[in-house]
Design a protein around this nucleic acid. Structure first.
Length: 285
DNA sequence: CCCGGAACCTGAAGGC
DNA sequence: TGCCTTCAGGTTCCGG
């Protein structure tokens, strides 16, 4: 599942093959991957365009083209981009192949068909509502604290909300909460200043480690040359079902938060103290 | 506005 | 061995 570190790795490793090349055509093995415009429109507007650059925003990849339009890719759950020399047979589950002017192909492989390709005039129509980039200077502890104050949902759900922060998904949310010692069900607006500070540092730390390890290959994630990443080998809690906590040895817990599998240490990440409403009522009465 | 749950999709894994 | 059910989770949509 590509999250920020995985998409960043794909961007870094595929850029040398893509930037400056001209797209001759896009071969659609499953045309449903094109979200907009219509398939005919897409084919007409993509052919012959040069790729001017490659950037990541949240979990999206953006390719500005010589036409002024932008090709926007999202790999969702199971997508990956592979570089092919153009001769080999297409791997199974290849949904689209971008044919480049040097004979190479960029393959969009995606077993579960969640992945999406868009060709848009203004990329802001796709990524405009995303929250701040957690690894860029504009993301400060003060901004993080202010955003958290507005949300009452479980902190795990808020961390995974792309309109809140861009790029954090299920795995890295679990890792960040463990790093900060915060229970995933704590209301976002109930964190103390100290907890906000630890979580701010935790989010940035786990994402940077993920990038340093070229992403986590828990399932379905491959780098453009087909290699896997090693970030999952460093995971303390994410997907470590049945394992002991690496810090205190307590068996890790597994719960569902907003329908998402959530791993945490019940001792290092204690549940919030009971709500104060009862106490307050008693005082009022 | 904010929250929570279903739907999308298909291979893998688990139960009987 | 095999059929059936459940699980995985990023995003979007819908209802409360």
């Amino acid at each position: 599942m590509p999250e920020l570190p995985e998409v960043e790795t794909i961007k870094n490793e595929i850029a040398p093959y893509l930037v400056g090349r001209t797209i001759q055509a896009v071969e659609l093995i499953w045309s449903g991957i094109i979200k907009e415009p219509s398939v005919d429109e897409f084919q007409r507007r993509i052919a012959g365009r040069k790729v001017l650059g490659l950037r990541r925003r949240g979990k999206y990849l953006l390719l500005p083209l010589s036409s002024g339009e932008t090709l926007v890719l999202h790999m969702k759950m199971s997508g990956s981009l592979l570089v092919s020399n153009g001769c080999a047979e297409l791997p199974s589950y290849t949904r689209a192949a971008i044919l480049l002017d040097d004979g190479r192909k960029i393959l969009f492989r995606d077993p579960r068909k969640f992945g999406v390709i868009r060709l848009v005039r203004d990329p802001e129509t796709v990524v405009g509502k995303l929250g701040p980039e957690p690894l860029e200077p504009g993301f400060t502890e003060e901004l993080f604290a202010e955003l958290l104050r507005r949300r009452s949902a479980p902190i795990k759900a808020v961390l995974c909300d792309q309109d809140f922060i861009a790029g954090v998904g299920n795995m890295y949310a679990d890792e960040a909460l463990f790093a900060a010692g915060i229970h995933p069900l704590r209301g976002a607006n109930t964190l103390s200043n100290e907890e906000v500070r630890r979580l701010f540092n935790g989010v940035r730390h786990v994402l940077e480690c993920g990038i340093g390890n070229k992403g986590a290959s828990i399932r379905n994630y491959y780098r453009p040359d087909g290699a896997t990443g090693t970030a999952h080998l460093e995971f303390k809690v994410a997907h470590q079902r049945g394992e002991p906590c690496p810090v205190c040895g307590t068996p890790l817990s597994y719960i569902k938060v907003r329908g998402r599998g959530t791993y945490f240490c019940p001792k290092c990440q204690p549940a919030a103290p009971p709500a104060k409403t009862e106490t307050r009522k008693r005082h009022l009465n």
